[in-house]
């Protein structure tokens, strides 16, 4: 359904985005399931295109893609929360912040497991195994500029590396602060 243009700047919204009922939570359960999945697809595509991950729900609901100025419709925060719940269930998002508040979430437009693989592949290809790298280097260093995970937010990165560690493919070292965290890849 969601067609995402790879040409940089503008995100091309799917046709359904201009359909007013798309912004109303459908009471019919079957309809709602379809609607929810369409939203999930749209969120992931949009966040991937703009390389976003953190979503404060209340603010996000007033902005694109949850608000369509052309047809004067926007999604209710409660509805958005329901959609995010579904994303969390599918493993494409996690709630952050206070446990029960559900005000903010991280959207994983690519799952941490996938990131972990990509990062490990990259490390192996560049013969960086058994070398200690800082997390800052990984995310913002000059070596990774062309990589997809360049500019990845820290929490997603850490989550990915933790997965690698649990697989025995890497070892993390605690520094004095979060930025000082180090990682050593094993082949």
């Amino acid at each position: 359904m969601t067609s995402v243009s790879e040409t940089v700047t503008t995100f091309e919204f799917p046709e359904i985005h201009n359909f007013p009922p798309f912004f109303t939570r459908q009471p019919n359960e079957d309809t709602w399931k379809v609607q929810r999945q369409l939203w999930c697809d749209l969120i992931l595509a949009f966040y991937k295109h703009n390389r976003l991950s953190l979503m404060p729900l209340a603010e996000a609901a007033t902005e694109s893609p949850f608000s369509n100025r052309q047809i004067h419709r926007s999604l209710q925060v409660d509805t958005l929360r329901e959609i995010i719940e579904e994303l969390v269930r599918q493993g494409h998002a996690v709630w952050t912040g206070p446990k029960n508040a559900k005000d903010t979430c991280m959207v994983y437009w690519r799952k941490p497991e996938v990131w972990a693989n990509i990062i490990h592949m990259w490390a192996c290809e560049h013969s960086l195994c058994n070398t200690v790298l800082t997390l800052y280097e990984l995310a913002n260093g000059d070596d990774t500029v062309k990589q997809e995970f360049h500019g990845l937010d820290l929490s997603t990165l850490r989550r990915s590396l933790e997965i690698l560690q649990s697989q025995g493919k890497a070892q993390m070292f605690a520094g004095t602060s979060d930025d000082d965290m180090g990682i050593k890849f094993f082949s």
């Binding site: 007013p20 009922p21 109303t24 459908q26 009471p27 019919n28 309809t31 609607q35 004067h72 419709r73």
Partner: peptide, 12 residues
């Protein structure tokens, strides 16, 4: 008609 999935609503 909404219940049988024929229509969907738009609340504004």
């Amino acid at each position: 008609c909404e219940r049988n999935g024929q229509l969907c609503r738009d609340e504004s």
